[in-house]
Design a protein around this nucleic acid. Structure first.
Lengths: 208, 208
DNA sequence: GGAAGTTAATCAATCGTTTGATTAATTTTG
DNA sequence: CAAAATTAATCAAACGATTGATTAACTTCC
């Protein structure tokens, strides 16, 4: 069992994800995927049945790897604010470590097409939102948070992160930031976490 | 001679925008555009040179209609906070009145392809960001705003609105909201404006 | 030897674009 | 003014290229 034996199936998935992220689903041809992965075109249909099968498989794997992540935090015996800060940190890290996929997910979400994918993404997002919702709602009920529009606060947290990922990097700062540069990514991550934690602290806990 | 003379050029633009919004640029064929607009296929190339020419024209018209909007506010002799609140209200209204186009713009922005469009959208966004940046920076300098990460605050404002538009509506609230329903749209608009104005007020002006 | 993996060749369908011809409207000319 | 010339708009048909998918033969491996 040689380790240099490449798993064509996996190679196809990785090449396809890269190409889908860069040029979109419709903008990527099966021949491109084949060339990029080093596999023959027929292998795509052999393993996944169709081009869409590849896409569905990518989404399923990714989403499966995501939904299991945010759960544990809620068990800790820490304050609502600390929980929220942990969630923010986790969320920022996850998304900024998978910017390409996150872009692709949002692109797919904004299309009226492929309702199966839409529902799948919706469910995954919905689950994450429920976790954040619970933390904030609990904080409000036990009096440690102000009464706020919870769903809007969630939109702010998620929207801020998404905006950082999607918006042209050169717009983000005066100098030329690049999210593919690990050093720049670290800086952006820290700034985003600091900002969102500061923002939520002030907005949710300031007596007024 | 009946005066039902339709401007085919305009019909093509409108049909193309609708289709591009619904199924994406690559997902829309010139034949679809022709059928939807009632024009002959050749007219697309006759008027716009190419399929991409249609897309570029749509973007140019839209962006031209947008960039002229946020300017006047800055001339008013009002406080930085009031300026910011006006900008927020204008921004929310504009985007929620053009949700389909806004989705398409973001979709296109997340593609590495079509650099010409990317730059055009980037410039338009960059201009809006500069306006908001100036307001907040002025507020900080004259002491009415706290010292904050200005670019991150902008990302929060823009990201929140975008998130509301793009995120699945059914996730937004317990009941089934629909942005195409004028009554629901009004409600979402008001909630978004109220939330963002409250958020910025608290975060930027709370003494701490 | 036979199942699994892999290949080149090929399929019909669709893609964006171009063509040459035709009609309708406008301008030029005698 | 009216005939001739020019331009703009529109059309059906076809273009070559590319699409996703399939075939059938071949290789690899247990």
């Amino acid at each position: 069992m040689k380790t240099e034996k490449v798993d064509k199936r996996q190679a196809i998935l990785e090449a396809a994800e890269k190409l889908f992220c860069e040029t979109g689903y419709e903008g990527t041809s099966t021949r491109q995927i084949a060339k990029e992965s080093g596999a023959n075109m027929a292998m795509i249909n052999y393993y996944f049945g169709s081009k869409e099968g590849v896409f569905v498989e990518i989404m399923n794997e990714r989403i499966a790897g995501f939904t299991s992540q945010l759960k544990i935090i809620n068990e800790d015996k820490i304050s609502a604010l600390e929980k929220l800060h942990k969630v923010i940190e986790g969320y920022v890290n996850r998304i900024l470590n998978n910017t390409a996929f996150h872009k692709m997910m949002h692109r797919e979400l904004s299309l009226t097409q492929r309702p199966e994918m839409y529902d799948k993404i919706k469910d995954a997002m919905s689950h994450n939102m429920q976790i954040i919702d619970r933390i904030i709602t609990d904080g409000i009920e036990d009096g440690s948070f102000n009464k706020v529009d919870v769903r809007m606060v969630i939109a702010t947290i998620m929207g801020t992160i998404t905006n950082i990922v999607i918006s042209p990097h050169k717009v983000m700062s005066c100098s030329n930031f690049d999210l593919n540069n690990p050093k720049d990514k670290k800086i952006i991550k820290d700034r985003a976490v600091a900002h969102l934690q500061d923002l939520t602290t002030v907005y949710l806990t300031t007596k007024r």
